[in-house]
């Protein structure tokens, strides 16, 4: 670190903490053992603030702030857990469960799923909203991987990892609202993609069973993400 780094001090849940210019509230919270819930954020990928689970309260403001994209200010008092936050987080999670067909019992990532474990952590034991039960297809055209849109929560991690880390930008989105769909190239079968390098990064950053390796049965698909911090570290080293 150079001598002219600016350090800000602020408070998370009553404990004084410090941050550099580039760190977000979420970064600093993680460093200090405060595990703010999130499903779209992943260290090493651009933060987009879209799952809205990492919203926190800031003293003096009634507005909630997504901690993954907010830089702390000197003296700021951040609250990461409150009845209001818990209520909103539970509701958002319930909305996600109601949106597509998340049937844990038959899912390849059962036991390794972030959506599932988030429900457990936030004590969501049932979903009050009516399940929408949409009809989405499964694309099994790729020799190694498959995508089941029924299990997708549209967190965008696969789109970002493919664009930012692999540099292929094979994935993007089409349609809008609840019809939004993660697509391969121009919405063709994955197996026929010219841009896909079959690296599998998207599969392993996916928080749910939407992206999985082929041949895995129920609960067999554990995600391996060690590559991401490693690649990010190497890249940082190279740019210095």
């Amino acid at each position: 670190m150079s001598g002219n780094t600016t350090i800000k001090t602020f408070v998370i849940d009553g404990n004084p903490v410090s941050a550099t210019e580039s760190e977000t509230i979420l970064d600093v919270a993680r460093q200090n053992g405060v595990n703010i819930p999130t499903l779209c954020n992943m260290s090493g990928l651009t933060s987009t603030g879209q799952c809205r689970l990492c919203m926190v309260e800031i003293a003096g403001s009634n507005r909630l702030t997504p901690s993954c994209v907010t830089k702390p200010e000197e003296g700021m008092e951040v609250v990461t857990e409150s009845p209001r936050l818990l209520k909103y987080r539970q509701m958002i999670l319930e909305l996600l469960f109601s949106e597509r067909n998340h049937i844990c019992a038959v899912c390849v990532t059962n036991g390794n799923c972030e959506l599932q474990s988030m429900a457990q952590r936030l004590e969501v034991d049932h979903v009050r909203y009516e399940y929408l039960h949409p009809k989405f297809k499964v694309d099994g055209s790729h020799p190694k991987f498959e995508v089941d849109h029924n299990r997708c929560i549209l967190c965008g991690r696969c789109v970002r990892v493919c664009d930012e880390i692999e540099g292929a930008h094979t994935r993007d989105l089409r349609n809008r609202g609840i019809q939004t769909l993660v697509i391969t190239d121009f919405d063709g079968p994955w197996g026929e993609s010219k841009s896909c390098t079959s690296c599998g990064k998207c599969v392993h950053v996916c928080p749910t069973g939407a992206l999985a390796e082929k041949g895995k049965s129920v609960a067999e698909m554990a995600k391996r993400r060690q590559f991401l911090p490693y690649l990010v570290m190497r890249r940082k080293g190279a740019s210095k």
Binding site: I103, A105, D125, P134, K135
Partner: peptide, 19 residues
């Protein structure tokens, strides 16, 4: 008591719902 996932989420039986 909603006893198990089927009672709580409709689980496997609900897999027919999209169709």
């Amino acid at each position: 008591v909603a006893f198990g996932d089927c009672a709580i989420t409709a689980n496997i039986p609900s897999m027919r719902n999209p169709f």
